[in-house]
Amino acid sequence: MKILKKVLLVLVILIALIAVIALILPSEVAVERSITINASPASIYEEVANLRKTGKWSPWDLKDPNITYVFSGPESGVGAKKKWSSEHEEVGNGTQEVIEAIPNQKVRTELYFGGFDEPSYANFTLEENGDATEVTWTLEGDMGSNPIFKIMGLFMDSMVGPAYEEGLANLKSRVESKPIFTADISVTTAEPINYLAIRETFDVTNPETIGPRMGEIYGQLLGYINKNGVMGAGQPMSVYINLNETGWEADVAIPVADPGEVSDESISVGQTPGGKVVKAIHMGDYNKLDDTHKQLQAYMQFNELEANGQGYEIYVSDPTESDTSQWRTDVYYPIK
């Protein structure tokens, strides 16, 4: 009986201590780690603002090869959301959503972990420092009034900090190995485009012949459109059919609202695939478009993006503009 009383007394004391701890300990916890990355803020921002890319460097994403994701919202920035599910004890289940995004400066996400009702917040801040960027990754959380959770909060830095260091090292390695892109490249969505076209094969070893021939084709297409009352629906374009070192086969095209029945056998009807695309904005002479295509292909390879249909170019600017640096061409590669 005396032993039981002593045990009960110890339990009462422990409960009292825990209650006192619950009153004294703060409920808020914070973890912070930083690293210097030899890259521009823009190059880093696109990795942390796009939740689809965190699987390439996040230590938790890399722990479980069988982790599953459901993505929603935009590709990047505010509203982008990721839901994950894993049987790995260190990964578990949860959601993450971008709630603030200042391009090339800051990304703030809201996290809900399985078993916790209160959200946590992770922040990335990017501060340019010469040719490098200081990247700071923080975690903010509220452990609530539960004394056990408050005690856990005391060890949060030692539990999460090493993983943050690993993640930042992974991010640094990924960004510093990234190809340099001078073109403005992004992943976005595009609507399908109906078009009328004439298919032609160009000799890329004689580039001076390409422009005049495309001009002839556009003239023929415009003549047909005007004669038959077809409504145009955009800037001139070309759709790649086959590309090789010496030849370029393409549908030289003009977008239309409704092609209707085509009476000219030399003119065909086509449609670009809608959905996700990689888009590059090329500024300058058409003769330098090949470099933009190579950058797009390198971007797709680096980000492991798979093509999903024929690419196409839209000639946004009027080529009669004498200043070729103002010529704009939007290049699209449909992806899965």
Rank of each mutant, 00 (worst) to 15 (best):
187 V>S: 03
46 E>V: 14
24 I>R: 15
134 E>Y: 10
138 T>D: 03
2 K>V: 13
333 Y>T: 08
240 Y>W: 03
103 P>K: 08
265 E>K: 08
320 T>K: 15
220 Q>C: 07
237 M>H: 13
6 K>Q: 07
223 G>R: 03
126 L>T: 05
151 I>H: 07
80 A>S: 13
50 N>C: 09
105 Q>W: 12
323 D>I: 14
78 V>G: 09
21 I>T: 11
78 V>C: 11
319 P>N: 10
195 Y>F: 13
172 K>P: 02
17 L>A: 12
7 V>Q: 08
214 M>W: 06
239 V>G: 06
227 K>M: 13
260 G>M: 03
72 S>H: 12
284 G>K: 01
101 A>N: 05
29 V>K: 07
281 I>D: 12
244 N>T: 01
218 Y>R: 06
217 I>F: 10
37 I>M: 10
133 T>Q: 11
225 I>W: 04
180 I>A: 08
272 T>L: 08
36 T>L: 11
247 G>S: 13
234 G>E: 09
301 Q>A: 13
98 V>Y: 01
29 V>P: 05
93 N>F: 00
164 Y>K: 02
270 G>A: 04
105 Q>H: 14
329 T>K: 11
67 I>F: 07
225 I>T: 13
61 D>A: 14
247 G>C: 05
314 I>F: 06
103 P>T: 08
272 T>I: 09
312 Y>F: 12
1 M>Q: 02
248 W>G: 10
278 V>T: 02
107 V>D: 04
47 E>T: 09
8 L>F: 15
5 K>E: 12
300 M>R: 12
159 M>Q: 09
242 N>T: 09
149 F>T: 00
165 E>G: 07
26 P>D: 06
333 Y>M: 13
179 P>C: 03
191 E>N: 09
253 A>G: 14
254 I>K: 10
289 L>A: 10
151 I>Q: 05
86 S>L: 07
269 V>D: 01
331 V>S: 05
146 N>R: 01
277 V>I: 10
119 P>K: 03
10 V>D: 02
292 T>K: 01
170 N>A: 06
17 L>N: 05
177 S>C: 02
140 E>T: 00
51 L>C: 00
206 N>G: 11
139 L>S: 02
269 V>F: 08
112 Y>I: 11
272 T>V: 09
242 N>E: 08
240 Y>T: 12
156 M>A: 13
159 M>V: 10
248 W>V: 11
265 E>W: 04
117 D>R: 00
200 E>H: 15
114 G>H: 00
132 A>I: 06
205 T>M: 11
78 V>H: 07
335 I>H: 12
271 Q>T: 07
174 R>L: 15
58 S>K: 00
85 S>K: 02
130 G>Q: 05
238 S>F: 13
335 I>W: 10
318 D>R: 13
185 I>N: 15
205 T>D: 05
315 Y>N: 10
58 S>W: 01
111 L>F: 03
289 L>I: 14
48 V>E: 09
7 V>M: 04
39 A>G: 11
190 A>E: 15
153 G>T: 05
201 T>G: 07
286 Y>A: 15
272 T>H: 03
171 L>V: 08
189 T>F: 01
110 E>V: 01
248 W>Q: 12
191 E>S: 14
217 I>V: 13
27 S>C: 05
58 S>F: 04
145 S>I: 02
199 R>G: 12
144 G>K: 00
328 R>M: 15
210 I>L: 06
50 N>D: 10
249 E>Y: 14
155 F>K: 05
6 K>V: 12
56 K>E: 04
31 V>E: 01
13 I>Y: 09
27 S>T: 01
226 N>K: 15
